[in-house]
Simulated assay, not measured.
Amino acid sequence: MTKQELFDNKVSKVMPMHIGNVYDKRMKAVEGYIDLFSVHSFSGSEVGTVLDDVVSTRGKMIRPRLLLLAGEFGSACKTAQDRLCKLAAIVEMTHMASLIHDDIVDDSDYRRGKPSIQKKYGKDAAVYAGDFLMGRISYYMMKEAMNRAGIVLSKTIEAMCAGEIGQAMCRYKENVTVEEYLNNIHGKTVALFMACCRIGAMESGCDERLVRNLELFGECLGLMFQIRDDLLDFTSDVLTIGKSAHKDFQEGIYTMPILCAMKQPGGRETLIPFMRRNAEGALTLQEMFQMETAVTRLGGVEAAWQEVKKLQSQAEAIADELPQCEYSRLLLKLVRKLGTV
């Protein structure tokens, strides 16, 4: 299990712990809707094998859990439970499709410890498998008359695509800025966290002020989640992990610790030689270790953690403005979990 998977496992355990069997039933309903929405007529064929594989491996489903939690704050939360479960399934399917496409772009061999769809069946099949999920999402949102949620999700997918395009345009860019980095992760990661909170709150009958507060909470949470993910590469021995460490850096994606380190005196002079060697495909494992050491020495890791802590404070302030109940306390606990090393 990778460090990210271990962390996701910890986060997922925080989210349902107070609800017990009721929450477990809702998550089972979400999984059931994912299966239902993914049903196809190609059983026994090669096409069917690919499509079955697409939905067989699931993560900790943090995004649908967040949608269900946001859906607890509205006056119609009880009567909207089935609809919320359907929407939670749809946002998870959106996430699943995005991961398939990410693996194609990144040429990733593994996803969640198993061979990726593109590795097993080829890039062409993987592209269309991801598109198949997106087609099913559109079909069921129209079939269930989820118009308002559909508008939110459509705009979110636009943002996700724009974020990925922005990141692609910044690859191997020596003068990439923190602002560009934040814009890119806001699209590719944060937008879906925000959509989960907005959709859950909106569909459960929250007023617009509460919907917006929950959406802002999701924004802080998504930013914390991504920056913390970027920090995972800087918390263990790269010489032990080997080539799987600093995958973003190897692909020319410079994350918050790198960018913070470059802003320090002598940072650019220290790190640009590593970037250029990497762009040439000549960076050795020893040099990668030296790069990691330099980023830490220059304060890049500490500065990135401080950004996480700042976002934690903002999220806690938003949580304090939410109706105080077991659900707001649970969201607060989740934020504090993300804010710990």
Rank of each mutant, 00 (worst) to 15 (best):
G113W: 09
M224Y: 09
A195P: 14
T296W: 11
E92Q: 07
V238C: 06
V211E: 11
D82L: 07
K123Q: 12
I90T: 15
L66R: 07
K337G: 15
L332F: 10
L283I: 08
Q264C: 10
A88T: 03
K28V: 00
K333A: 14
D248P: 00
M262P: 12
T189R: 06
I90D: 13
I62Y: 08
M275N: 08
K60P: 01
S12Q: 00
G267W: 01
T296L: 12
F73T: 13
C260T: 02
R111G: 00
T340S: 14
I199A: 09
T177V: 01
P115N: 00
Q167E: 15
R276N: 09
N21T: 11
N175I: 13
H18V: 15
A294G: 08
I185C: 00
Y33E: 10
R297F: 10
L330K: 11
G74M: 04
S75Y: 09
G130Y: 13
E144I: 04
S313C: 03
T240F: 12
S138I: 13
V341E: 14
G299F: 02
V178T: 13
R276D: 04
M194Q: 15
F274K: 04
P115K: 07
P257H: 03
F7R: 10
G150R: 07
C325I: 13
H101Y: 01
S56A: 15
V152P: 11
K337L: 12
F225V: 00
E302S: 14
D207E: 15
I117L: 01
I258D: 02
L331N: 03
K310C: 11
R268G: 12
T284Q: 04
A125V: 05
S98T: 09
D233I: 07
S244C: 07
F217N: 08
A191M: 07
K86T: 07
M288E: 04
C196R: 13
G281F: 11
A195Q: 12
L133S: 04
S328P: 08
